[in-house]
């Protein structure tokens, strides 16, 4: 195998480690990039290099950006007094895609997990408590996953904030948009029924 082929094979091996890609799809992607190397590969390589140099966690909320303080935390219009607590950066980005929330976020970096021995000290909970005082937060919205670990974490945070006197709310649980009752699991139907409202 020549050195040139080795480089391409190494690139395929690296690409195959990415989520959602296996060796075959990585090979296809690399072949595609090589064919479009001027228009796609070179700009992609430049951007990857650039982001590798500049990407970092926001010191305030834990979001990923290219500065010490992210755009959301820097935006004064988002100082609404509402703070949305999410498990991971991907959840923050999902909330932002929805454009339904105009306040600020706090990324925990995980959930309490008995299985993985993740305790409160492993999450960004102390920073959350500090922020509530520093940023005059009036409502904390717990947007954590509706899983055992997610809700265990939500209850823990609610307990920690109990004495602060601020409102602690959580996302509703129920039928998703486009959801058909026949395909819903029993737990979701039960939660939706409990949270029913006058129509």
């Amino acid at each position: 195998m020549s050195q040139a082929t080795k480089d391409i094979e190494a690139l395929i091996t690296q690409m195959a480690k990415l989520p959602g890609l296996g060796p075959r799809s990585a090979r296809r992607a690399v072949l595609h990039l090589i064919k479009k190397r001027t228009g796609q590969m070179a700009p992609l390589a430049d951007l990857m290099h650039q982001v590798a140099q500049s990407a970092r966690e926001c010191l305030n909320c834990g979001n990923i950006g290219t500065a010490d303080i992210c755009d959301i935390c820097n935006d004064d219009r988002r100082a609404t007094g509402e703070l949305c607590v999410v498990e991971d950066v991907s959840d923050l980005w999902a909330m932002e895609r929805g454009q339904a929330f105009s306040g600020r976020y706090h990324v925990l970096g995980g959930t309490l997990s008995a299985l993985d021995s993740v305790g409160p000290e492993d999450l960004r909970i102390p920073q959350l408590v500090d922020r509530i005082a520093a940023e005059q937060i009036t409502e904390v919205i717990l947007a954590l996953n509706a899983t055992v670990d997610g809700q265990t974490t939500a209850h823990y945070i609610a307990d920690q904030l109990h004495d602060t006197g601020i409102a602690v709310t959580s996302l509703a649980q129920g039928v998703p948009i486009g959801g058909e009752l026949d395909y819903l699991d029993d737990g979701t139907i039960g939660a939706a029924l409990k949270a029913r409202r006058r129509f």
Binding site: A146, Q151, A158, D159, Q173, A191, K194
Partner: peptide
């Protein structure tokens, strides 16, 4: 059975964990 109703009960959830 899923026992999803326990997700909203902090003490029950602590017991389950």
């Amino acid at each position: 059975r899923q026992r999803a109703d326990i997700l909203n009960d902090r003490l029950g959830l602590a017991g389950l964990n």
